[in-house]
Design a protein around this nucleic acid. Structure first.
Lengths: 213, 213
DNA sequence: GTCGACAGGATTGTCGACAACACCTCGGCA
DNA sequence: TGCCGAGGTGTTGTCGACAATCCTGTCGAC
């Protein structure tokens, strides 16, 4: 949203971290990255600074960068913050979304129903991402959108991808439907509450997960 | 929270931007900053990348950095996001604060009362900052704390310092008192609601402000 | 007179080399 | 044997120089 000063290196490195090319806790040595991305150290350093303030990696003075370790407790905190910001966005979407956006929201819900019907967890997960992103677009709330995109990045590189859990799509589909209905109807308070309830259920799953360890 | 890779330059430059040394929209030319902070371009560039992802400045490829212009609408969005995250933090503070932290919260409220009694707007503003920061400390919610610190930076360099408006301290003092009482009492829902109400009142002032332009 | 091409200057992006620092290993000593 | 300091190695932090890019002002053609 804000910048992108050329360096495609930032995007490549971010993608690789999120894809798990580098293990959590692994050191990111500048000279090695230099060879991998075929450039000098300057772009690498810029990328590291950027990703550090996105929260994907940790940097210590004179000691280099490591990819950040994420615990279940961290994911819970991140999801709590997402719940706060995404319900804000959902509320705004209810009052500000265009007609096209409302139509597309409904479209995604029916595609989700189809995905659940044919047990397509991967397809459902992709639709889930599209839905949440579209809600932010429709909210026209740049700050919340930017912060949530950041939070999503922080959490996603740990395979707490619960949308892929068996039975989870069937559980979250009605929650998504309620959210979209409220937005389409223009009911701000209901949209906000529905989004909050949805992410609270996600947090509930994570807390049970945490208790099991 | 995360890093600080040596470069005190980041802190100096951030301080100067927030202090208004550089006007909104002003270009930040690396060579000039080089002379001002007496160092090479490398630390300067690192600082610019960092501040760009904090949202204080904008960077465009091959076109340099400018200090970001902030409109009243932006401040409203930022405050909405703060409302969402700070009420989350207030709720957590109600359940997680230590006894010492609860005592200090009450202490700040009584100091605020004294400041209002002697019409000390500047002192009240400082106490206001201390109070909000302490609530985040007491919440032990790192993610929310970090995001709000960032949001506060983004807004603060525009003189929408409404704590300095005449009559404003007297208006917000009871709101702060309600928040602290709820936290001290350990009432999560009440703390959350009180913080949200407080920042909603701030947003109300900003919206009236916006309508006047 | 207006528009487009073109040079000149200024600024950013990148590179390679060197200095500074942290960690590890090894040898000296009680 | 155990501790402490010196040196070696690897990595990060910084600098100066060069290449690439953009903006501005000027000139010429229509």
């Amino acid at each position: 949203m804000t910048s992108e000063p050329t360096s495609e290196v930032v995007d490549l490195l971010r993608r690789d971290i999120l894809a798990g090319v580098f293990a959590p806790g692994e050191r990111l040595v500048e000279l090695q990255l230099t060879r991998r991305y075929e450039c000098g150290r300057a772009p690498i350093r810029a990328a590291l600074v950027e990703l550090a303030s996105e929260g994907l990696i940790d940097r210590e003075a004179n000691r280099g960068a490591t990819v950040r370790r994420i615990t279940v407790a961290d994911v819970i905190e991140i999801t709590e913050a997402r719940a706060a910001l995404e319900s804000l966005a959902a509320g705004h979407a209810a009052t500000r979304a265009t007609d096209d956006e409302r139509a597309e929201l409904r479209q995604i819900i029916s595609e989700m129903e189809a995905a659940v019907a044919r047990d397509d967890a991967v397809g459902y997960s992709a639709l889930n991402g599209r839905l949440h992103r579209l809600i932010h677009t429709a909210s026209h709330h740049r700050v919340a959108t930017e912060l949530v995109a950041n939070l999503r990045n922080r959490a996603s590189h740990h395979h707490y991808q619960l949308a892929l859990m068996p039975g989870r799509p069937a559980e979250s589909l009605p929650q998504h439907a309620v959210i979209v209905e409220a937005i389409v109807a223009g009911d701000q308070a209901a949209a906000q509450a529905a989004m909050f309830a949805h992410l609270s259920s996600v947090i509930g799953v994570l807390e049970r997960w945490q208790a099991m360890d």
